[in-house]
Design a protein around this nucleic acid. Structure first.
Lengths: 241, 241
DNA sequence: CACCATTTGTTCGTATGTATA
DNA sequence: GTATACATACGAACAAATGGT
């Protein structure tokens, strides 16, 4: 197990970090106590301590004397602006992201939805719910609303490609950008708690947004609910684009 | 009681709305059942229903068959951009806002804080904690960090005026703007739960931001924790200013 | 699982006032 | 003035959803 050329505590540091990344320890949860880790890795307690100190230095865990060690999964930076794309944001941070279709249906536009998508009240809207995962862990549920008249069959296209951008391209929309975002926090609805693997009542970050095509016509109204500590939205007020 | 010239159900709608605004029913709490309201107002159940339907249409209550009717205090729209100011945002929506100093202290800049405020690590920083209230209800706690070297005494100035803008003006800063914002959701810390009158664990919206003066020098790093359903941040991606 | 009470939703019918042609 | 259409208001009964026993 022990690789040559790399000091022991570095190997242990990497191994613990892998466990954290794999979701073996939830963010905020307690790590096993030092002595337990020492026996697991078959080394002295001092050796584990060196690894743990390094992890704390890099902000991966928080050590509190007398209480324990708590894993600290750093939030994923998520810049939002006109050109926001999910996968690109995540993959820039060396993580794998995937979207999975949960269900699709057609509803009649409510007053608010009609206003956002510039439709008549009651106009048919295609709703696609998809679950976004990062490194295999579900982090967000997205409810995407499209004018059904223009995008019938988009759900099938999305299911095949797994990407909204590609699905939209199949409908002739090669370019689109975000015009506004609305953000608030609420507690997780029971319906979502199962899919996001959260206790009902846990905080979720809700981001609503509107995408328009190159001509400025609204094409997608999106409500995305993400796990509380998963994302940190970044907004740069200096650059317009 | 019945005014002439205004139809009955409109009068009842207004009266119920007044009760909600007066805080007679807390946000999320159940309204009396239809029959009870009908007898209270001395009208038929249909008449109350019309009033209630109108209130739901305007988003003031949420009606659920079999469960009841629940008051829904709408989120306060809070546009964020370079020129974001708290009081101006709130007072635009016909509410009274006030800031109250909780405490002030001087700390040494951490690595992150030093980076944000363009200071050396360990440089003294003035921290002002203030509680923001709307219509007398606490909605947010702000932790404002200033370079102590430039702004010693700012806390006293803030305590007197109750406004950061005015306090800064006294220090020769008449113009400042926000360069970036970082946003995430987490659950309420025990320390804050008392002041925000929240159950510990309730969702809070955390907004970090950096203000710079006219020359682009960082003057204030701010962490604001607001009650989950209180605010809806609005971001307009089309206008840079 | 069935059963029940509570509460909102829906659909009849009836009567009245008001605006319009 | 009359006829028509529409919104308002009341009454009674039943349907449907919810939550608990």
């Amino acid at each position: 197990m022990r690789r040559a050329g790399v000091v022991l505590w570095r190997q242990i540091e990497k191994e613990i970090e892998r466990d954290i990344d794999a979701g073996l320890f939830a963010s905020g949860s307690r790590l096993p106590v030092e002595s337990e880790l020492a026996t697991r890795f078959g080394v002295n307690r001092h050796t584990v301590r060196q690894a743990l100190a390094a992890l704390q230095e890099r902000g991966r865990i928080r050590i509190q004397q007398g209480r324990g060690m708590f894993v600290h999964r750093p939030m994923i930076d998520y810049p939002i602006g006109p050109g926001t794309r999910f996968s690109a944001n995540i993959e820039r941070q060396r993580m794998t992201s995937s979207g999975r279709l949960v269900d699709a249906s057609t509803i009649a536009a409510s007053r608010q939805l009609a206003e956002d998508l510039a439709l008549d009240v009651g106009a048919p809207c295609l709703v696609i719910n998809d679950l976004r995962e990062i490194d295999g862990v579900p982090v967000a549920i997205s409810s995407r609303h499209f004018p059904a008249a223009r995008f019938t069959g988009l759900d099938l296209c999305f299911e095949k490609t797994g990407s909204i951008s590609q699905a939209l391209a199949a409908f002739g929309v090669h370019e689109f950008h975000r015009t506004w975002s609305r953000i608030h926090a609420e507690h997780c609805a029971v319906a979502d708690s199962a899919m996001l693997r959260l206790p009902s009542g846990a905080p979720v970050l809700v981001v609503e947004s509107l995408n328009v095509d190159a001509k400025g016509t609204p094409i997608e109204y999106d409500v995305s609910r993400s796990v509380g500590g998963a994302f940190q939205l970044l907004i740069d007020h200096t650059t317009p684009s």
